[in-house]
Write a protein that binds this DNA or RNA. Structure first.
Lengths: 210, 210, 210, 210
DNA sequence: GATGAATGAGCTTTCATTCAT
DNA sequence: CATGAATGAAAGCTCATTCAT
């Protein structure tokens, strides 16, 4: 009770940009870039419009800073993934489970996907950077695992150029939840979803494969 | 001088709303709802702002009318699909091929998906109606086919509640093309894509199924 | 009575930009470029801010358009001057009289001089154009007359590079009136001023010239 | 470590207001009163906005203090002038030479003239004081000299009410340099300018005076 | 004294919407 | 029907000014 009451100036200053970025995230997610008012972001933080401009020069820069701020966690994920060992199928499942948690189940990432789809045309460099930093490494990882599995005879031969098919259920769940916001499409049970997903991915739909 | 107008007044009048809807589609897709200016839509048609208001009372109504206008073709698709016959797997492939063409390859539908993701929060009734008219019937069709295939022993038993996994590659391709706009993610070759997609869907990834 | 009462739309439209330019002149003169509010200009015309922006894209463009609008009359003057004939001294007096009326006595030109001095740094191209169109031709005219008078023996030999000395009393009166605004420096009587000006210019101050 | 600061705290403190006034001069000259930002003045000094407010209560007061600060030197001039002796013409030339140096050739005074013309309407008391302290004494001095020269028969009789004509070339050169900033109107050579100026002033333009 | 975070009033500019023509 | 001048309610952004540290 004693050490938490008063925030010092210095602490406050370090906090402000993050508070603003958090508020910006909520507003941009709710209204999109053009539909968001700086004043609403400020209100959320409990400051005035002017204060937002103390930390971010323009609405555009605030948007980009916000995207960058919330994009960070992904990088750790890629690190974790590198450390896995075992059969290719197990490692693939491990990666896909992680991706499911990080993309489909994490509200922040999910809404980031919405913003990327909705505002990508206005911020092309941002999209490109995202591709290079997030999408490409993930795809590369999946590709590598597939190739490895095929080389060892664990996987059948499939053209690696369409490896997005392997992760498609994750992005699809993400997008459906974005669109229907838990109203029409109920949040799936993770274990049940992954079980079905992996079963189909590895064994296919047919009772007797060709 | 008298005959140079191929389009009569009456035809012109009937054409106007459609021209406006076309223009509205392009602008809303490019800039989103909030970012689009009525004047830019008017400019595209070659009329003035006032004319747009002759046909549509507000920007909101124009947006909704535009979404409805471009959503129509889907309904025919569902009719076509009902007429197929043959083995469950073949009919499933036929449906998925159609969906791929109609959703992933058709620019209009693709951009409609963008608008639904981007502006859905602002137009919830519109999203709900979309779900009821488009998504639900498709899912129902897939579900029915899966159940039928499982009943006949053609398909293995899988929980039907996650049937979106079956169509996931289609939505995923759609979304990736929306995001990267053919810059980083090249437009896939349809036949090659579907071959890989179906191979994986039916036979799975493992060389020797469990 | 019949033709003056109501201003038609078309007339109004043709009038508006001029009304706005007039109002802009008064406000820019009173408060300078940065100190002027578009709303005050609009109020003066009896319209709203938005209307000003129907006719002029930015405050900067409005300012430039205003300067151009009020700079026009000078050109006629240069035409008139070309038609004079007689002794060089008489023609010089005729020109200087005209310049006195047009620059020192005309409130519009006088205030234009204020704006050129005050805002010149912000609008350098505008200043340059002014020089080329107004100052340079006048100086050229004076120079030509001086050279002619010297050639014919009517004038003494003086270096023509400082011919601004000849017109200095005109600009000086202009500037003093701008600064003191008829409070401390009374508006001079035109005839008396010109008499003294010309007497000094032609005969000099000394009782017995060297 | 202790002696590296050449400027002590106390000296620094005494220096600050003057540094601020210097910086204010440059910024006000460049952007005018309304166009100048306190922050730009502070940046020039290397302090923050707040510091400016330690020394000057408002932007208005800073402006006035700055004008007063840079107006000082003129007073000495008037003292010097009082000490001259000799023929009226020689003393007049001496005065005019001094004025030329102090007004036309001195950048500070020149820019002060710009500010007086540009911002005079906003600071009328300031202008009035300037008139009483600078302009009026100069004019009085010139008038006295003219009257003396006329009384002694050295000068011809001219109406003393227009004595600004005598100093006009100085103010005119000043204003032209303000407007054209050495781009179009080259800085005149002092000796040559004064020679022509005085020649015209004393002997007039005509070869044979009336 | 010096700082700089914060304010809030105010400015330029935009744009959906209206309506007389 | 079509126009486009006009509106007015914002919205983004600025900046003189304040004040706790």
């Amino acid at each position: 009770m004693a050490d938490q009451k008063k925030v010092t100036r210095a602490e406050q200053k370090a906090l402000r940009p993050i508070q603003i970025l958090d508020a910006a995230f909520e507003e941009f997610v709710k209204c999109g870039f053009a539909g968001t008012r700086i004043e609403d972001i400020a209100d959320r933080v409990g400051v005035t419009k002017g204060t937002v401009y103390v930390y971010f020069e323009t609405k555009e820069q605030l948007f980009e800073a916000m995207i960058n701020h919330f994009s960070v966690p992904f990088q750790e994920l890629l690190g974790i993934v590198g450390a896995f060992s075992g059969k290719a199928a197990d490692r693939l499942m491990a990666i896909l489970s992680l991706l499911y948690e990080q993309i489909a189940e994490d509200r922040t990432t999910r809404e980031l996907v919405r913003l990327v789809i909705a505002e990508g045309q206005r911020f092309p460099e941002l999209i490109d950077r995202h591709h290079d930093e997030f999408i490409a490494p993930i795809i590369a990882k999946i590709d590598a695992l597939l190739l490895e599995g095929m080389a060892s005879g664990e996987f059948r031969e499939i053209p690696v150029e369409f490896s997005e098919i392997v992760v498609a259920p994750i992005l699809t769940t993400t997008v459906l939840r974005l669109i229907f916001d838990d109203r029409r499409v109920p949040t799936p049970n993770k274990e049940a979803f992954l079980r079905t997903y992996f079963d189909l991915l590895f064994n296919g739909l047919l009772a007797k494969p060709h």
